[in-house]
Design a protein around this nucleic acid. Structure first.
Lengths: 117, 117
DNA sequence: CCTATCCATTGACAAACATCAACTCAATAG
DNA sequence: CTATTGAGTTGATGTTTGTCAATGGATAGG
């Protein structure tokens, strides 16, 4: 986080005395948190998480028409979830004739993954 | 995912012929996806992600009164975010007198972290 | 008691979200 | 050109979310 300050171990100290000094918030790393949270948010739906999982298991590109029947959802809804993933920078797409192929963008999950470890 | 089926490489094949065979969805690993998505969802907010980050950096327990001033938010809002994290199983809390201390639950992020790697 | 402090809960509200039906658009086969 | 197919967009709807002001509950000091 970069909130690198001493979080003083609390002690009994009530009555007329504020619990702790107000703590400065360095606002650094704020952008990183926003970035990682947006990725996590995109993964915060079982359908989208499974979509990413399928795409990752099949290292190549996967046609939308193969993804839709995996879920008990309408095609527009799946399309919407793919759009959310695309806007989060997690997947990319590519058209070939009538079909659209999706794939996971390498390193898209790297930052979040590193932070989680 | 466990959608372990052959995703046939697409070929030109339009006109009166459906794009692909409907694909069976094994529903296994469904629960895992739901579990991991709920954790990801809880992390899908910059404030909550930073809260977890602060708690992780300070391996011990951190008082709520130290967390609130880190954000430009009201105390009830921070309390709400902590509750979301608690319900997601990511953090735990403990009271001592007037104060409440929060801490990251070990291994709470393990499954998601492993999947992301 | 009475008061001050920390924290959680409630209620309210606007914004965002998940979903589907209906539609549009692009591409291809005939 | 026409019909068909895959996929993205729009509009509508019900649900969830983030936020705060106000309130409530517990604890400790005087």
């Amino acid at each position: 986080m970069a909130v690198d300050l001493e979080l003083v171990p609390k002690q009994k100290r009530p009555a007329g005395v504020r619990c702790c000094e107000p703590v400065v918030y360095p606002d650094i790393e704020r952008e990183e948190a926003v970035r990682m949270a947006s990725v996590a948010k995109a993964l915060g739906d079982p359908v989208r998480l499974q979509l990413v999982d399928v795409l990752r298991k099949h290292a190549g590109k996967v046609c939308v028409c193969e993804l839709v029947p995996l879920f008990d959802l309408s095609q527009p809804t799946v399309s919407h979830h793919l759009k959310v993933l695309r806007e989060a920078g997690i997947v990319g797409s590519e058209r070939a004739g009538l079909w659209a192929y999706y794939f996971v963008i390498p390193d898209a999950l790297k930052e979040l993954s590193a932070w989680l470890s």
